[in-house]
Design a protein around this nucleic acid. Structure first.
Lengths: 306, 306
DNA sequence: CTGTTAGCGCATTCAC
DNA sequence: GTGAATGCGCTAACAG
């Protein structure tokens, strides 16, 4: 068995409850005593038994993160950033990426204070104070999320038109053509073309984009996802298109993190994570949280000509 | 507070230790009593307090999985399969994909019985009975792992040559050219060309592959990873190469799962997971485990002409 | 077969 | 300030 507070108490010649207080930085113990105990605990290699602590207090500082689609880079970025922000606030993040049932069991075992769901879909956990899904805002309408994407797209489109881009080709997946819709509605470009593709069928994707580029000769391409943009970039190059001299490429991404080879528009992974972590902290401490939308951001690199 | 075994005991008019036994399916309690208690527990919505159980037994059925590179599809496949196999054996898999320190804390909190490391690199955890890394076999030499990859490559190459392929182009990343080495050594093909690329620089990757294809006109392409193969496939198509009529494409993947658009050679994710889970089970129960290598497998689809 | 008891490691009263 | 006592929910002897 490992070192317990009783072991420390014996060594320190104090009672184990004094050790408990010292370890929890209680004001009820004299500073020198506290320091002595802390030093001794470190020296003896004491590690708290979390099960015992949870049992005794009925509380846990663990926060569950449920992210079934972690293989998508945007979600992975969100997971990492949120974990980081939670740690900074003294929580222990516990990630589950597997089935809903596994997640439930893991979280219940850790007695998580709340669960953050990172997915377009909501999941209903029981036996937890509350869940939070930044992508659905738990009960708010889908429109709200669409509005955020739309804001980002408009900002990116404006930047492109103001820097001399006139014709655009939007590339999005069949199922979600929000980008085309936004660009069409806003009518910021002189010429707009849309191209719908399927990333599971690279052959048809290639043909579709080639055809679209041949027909329209756009000076800008906006993609609804980073993966789409990477493929589009390569296809453009294979067709001899000079990026970004002849044509700029930019893509939407949910959680922007530095290091992308493609210019992106969307929301900063870090800022979104800060907001999520702040929200969680406020709610757990039963404090007010005034909800402000994050502003869309644009991360430019060599794929866009200004 | 939630329902405890005492609550159930009161309702059932038995002692709480009887309830405990019934819940743990002990033979020390009569079948009717057991059924009655089980039914009652279900009806009352009882959920075990794992902290209390861990505290009382000093044991936990949680197994840690540390997979820092889960964004790579092969590792993701391994995680899912291993989690599944562990569950089948009564363990609770807990995944950590974040920093080493976070993982340590999470696993220590769950008092995991052991930790499975899914990474090319080893990590040294303390306070755990044992760790297991199927990719390094913990202390065995790198050569062992290389040998497995080599076996798979030879099997795939033989299949290609026996079905009429004579010239091959291998495509691998600069850092790991094991595939080129194997193909060179084995000399199964009449003509062999190598192409080294970098997936972070799509522009140069495109140029390099185009150049290689122009020069060599192979009737088979073997890639050292699925990502490389997907890109190569698209580039081939963009160059007007008819896949698989003029040229077959196949790629190595660590953990093969059904559903890939590219033909693959490597090891079955499921079989590898079974082996890992069996090993863990044996070791935890302090039983013998006779170590047998998995056999390489090949998953063919339309990208290979037979 | 069932009940009684002790104790896992810790936080938290309440005395001193 | 510090220590002694109690209990969190559960398992595991042991007693009946």
């Amino acid at each position: 068995m490992s070192i317990t507070i009783k072991d420390i108490a014996r060594e320190a010649n104090v009672s184990f409850s004094t050790v408990s207080k010292a370890l929890n930085d209680s004001p009820l113990v004299k500073e020198p005593t506290k320091q002595m105990i802390l030093a001794l605990a470190k020296e003896m290699g004491y590690e708290i038994n979390t099960s015992a602590k949870i049992l005794a207090t009925g509380k846990s500082n663990a926060v569950g993160i449920y992210c079934p689609s972690i293989t998508k880079p945007a979600y992975a970025a969100a997971c990492l950033e949120i974990s980081h922000q939670l740690k900074l606030r003294g929580f222990l993040p516990a990630l589950s990426t597997s089935s809903f049932n596994d997640a439930k069991e893991l979280f219940s075992r850790l007695k998580v204070a709340c669960i953050i769901i990172l997915d377009q879909q909501d999941f209903y956990f029981t036996n937890v104070d509350f869940t939070y899904n930044p992508y659905t805002e738990n009960n708010e309408t889908k429109e709200r999320f669409y509005a955020l994407k739309k804001d980002a797209a408009i900002k990116a489109a404006s930047l492109l038109t103001h820097s001399g881009h006139h014709s655009v080709l939007t590339v999005s997946e069949y199922e979600e053509d929000w980008l085309s819709e936004v660009i069409k509605k806003e009518a910021l470009f002189d010429k707009v073309h849309h191209c719908y593709v399927n990333t599971n069928d690279l052959e048809r994707l290639f043909t579709a984009i080639k055809k679209a580029l041949d027909q329209t000769l756009p000076d800008a391409i906006m993609c609804s996802s980073r993966k789409l943009a990477e493929l589009t970039l390569m296809i453009s190059k294979s067709l001899g298109l000079n990026i970004p001299v002849e044509c700029s490429i930019i893509a939407y991404e949910e959680n922007i993190e530095p290091g992308s080879p493609i210019s992106l528009f969307g929301y900063s992974a870090e800022k979104s994570a800060v907001k999520t972590a702040d929200y969680i902290t406020a709610k757990i401490n039963e404090q007010e949280f005034d909800y402000v939308n994050n502003k869309p951001e644009i991360m430019l690199n060599y794929t866009v000509k200004l």
